[in-house]
Design a protein around this nucleic acid. Sequence first.
DNA 1: GCCGATTTGTCCGTATGTATC
DNA 2: CGATACATACGGACAAATCGG
Lengths: 243, 243
Amino acid sequence: MPKAKYDFIYKDLKSRIENGEYEFQELLPSENHLVLTYGCSRNTVRRAVAALVTDGYVQTMQGKGVRNIFEPAQQTSFTLGGIESFKESALRNRQTPRTKVLCFTELTADEKISKKTGFPPGSQLYYLQRLHYLDDKALILNHNYFLKDIVPSLTPEIAENSIYEYLENTLRISIVTSKRVMTVEKMTQIDEKYLELGDYNCLAVVSSQTYNSDGIMFEYTQSRHRPDYFRFQDNATRRPASH
Amino acid sequence: MPKAKYDFIYKDLKSRIENGEYEFQELLPSENHLVLTYGCSRNTVRRAVAALVTDGYVQTMQGKGVRNIFEPAQQTSFTLGGIESFKESALRNRQTPRTKVLCFTELTADEKISKKTGFPPGSQLYYLQRLHYLDDKALILNHNYFLKDIVPSLTPEIAENSIYEYLENTLRISIVTSKRVMTVEKMTQIDEKYLELGDYNCLAVVSSQTYNSDGIMFEYTQSRHRPDYFRFQDNATRRPASH
DNA sequence: GCCGATTTGTCCGTATGTATC
DNA sequence: CGATACATACGGACAAATCGG
């Protein structure tokens, strides 16, 4: 249930586009028209449309209109922009997620871990290894580091369900920003043991640092993906700002 | 030289942050303060700040302020969000780019090519294979498909320099939107021949469809990256909209 | 716990510029 | 040239969150 008006308009337009209410390449109603149908100001409409642009759903053209460039094919993607937990993206794609906790320990960040994760040396951390299954196939091996100060009393039981649910619903931590880096790395013995890599000798690795609303980095995660099931989608726009 | 006021403020703040004018985790001047220093409305300031948020430079916190979360480390990244040509990102990282054209032909899209690229069957296309070097190391093998209707009189000479320069400066085509998909694929014989892959048997593949300002997809490109030099960076924010 | 000051978030109405047709 | 459509910018109002007294 969206509180904000622009968010309601955004969701409404988005679902209309997804449901094929506008043809591919068709123009949406003009901003002035949308102002009348939603009974709001033009700024609010523009904000909703801007969100659709960053989603890669539409394209705005000065003097012409707003064109629908959404193609249903992109729905099949596994990972989209934005921050999403494994469970969320699995359910979005109507698949059955399962998580197995391989390792659950506490540790103190030494120099090596600090350099790898970005936590200051001496930080008290939870360290987890988790294996994520989708429809009974082991697809992702996760290495999680959580700052104990921010995420207290984490348990293997919580880790087996969704840690993000625990963070948001129980601890009321609001996740705000996440920096992600995607690379390709050679497989390790652990990868080989748990993921069925077949002929592949390397995998897709997504490393991310997550910040809470106080600007504190409380999570470092390295997700190691089976390459044949990895797909990362992105919509880029060429801003005049980038020149 | 930016025309728009918000773009000037955006660039100004961005360079100040990059130059370390604000400490990591320090709060920027409040919006009202920025309104005074730049002599503009609050909306304009907010727009500039919003752009910094999507760049992952700052974090806004209601009731508190705007916090600098920029770390110089992220400058070393090769690929950032946004649309950037090989030459641009090379120069941004102060490296010497070089491009070798391996193949330059014209062809008509058959069923197979259509399915792969998204061009309708029967489209008249240029097909190029290009090898990109950075500091004399072969890093990227590109397969480019351009729609001849939109990109006429392409030559190997142009392809050896920057095609994007030709598109923007000569043909005056403004690139607007690009859909990208990142995957990991097994190497082919061509990859093996031109890229020094060492022990790796697969590589990072970025496929992208690029649209011009008329909403026409005029380019399909598959970039095959040497995995040890591939790095894709991204800043995600958890929008309330995504629930 | 309350109140007020500060700061960001949302929304409105209006005016003007620029591109398209 | 005029009508339409998006882009930029301004100023004002109120809400919501934070922080200090």
